[in-house]
Amino acid sequence: MSQETDPKVVDAVRAHPFFHGFDPAFVHEVCQHAREVRFEPDELLAKEGAPADVFYLILEGKVALEAGAADNPHLTVQTVGRDEVLGWSWLVAPHRWRFDARATKPVRAAALSAEVLRRTLASHPTWGYQFLIRFMPVLAERLENTRIQLLDLHAH
């Protein structure tokens, strides 16, 4: 095992629902430079416009995704919690965060290196395809939820 890989983080990543069933070799590969991170309430995990250089697996706590507008600079549009993932900006050019992500409760997360992930997915197409198949439902669900939000359920 590489010295750049923390075995505790590998265990946490393997145990996370997002990575259930993946090839252990793939998990080991993407865990290079991964680290466990903690955030106190109100600390930012991601800042809109900043480089999206990590992919978070939330292990504990809750994170608010905030969209800024002139009349409401901190509008929370979604919360993400334990066993969920945070961030797709690392996968899509120009690899910059589209939202602020702020801890609303103490957060413990595994932060996977976006550079390692992109390199691994590109160099191992089978793993890359499996990863995208796993990732697409997350994106689709969030798109669906946004669509439901646009319907404004409570206005009817």
Binding site: P41, K62, A64, L65, E66, N72, H74, L75, T76, V77, Q78, T79, G81, R102, T104, K105, N145, I148, Q149, D152, L153, H154
Partner: peptide
Amino acid sequence: VDAAGREWYGDVGVVTTRIPD
């Protein structure tokens, strides 16, 4: 709630987002 300011520390998302939990 569907949307909230920073005064809200609870869940944000349409009610269907809580069904999986």
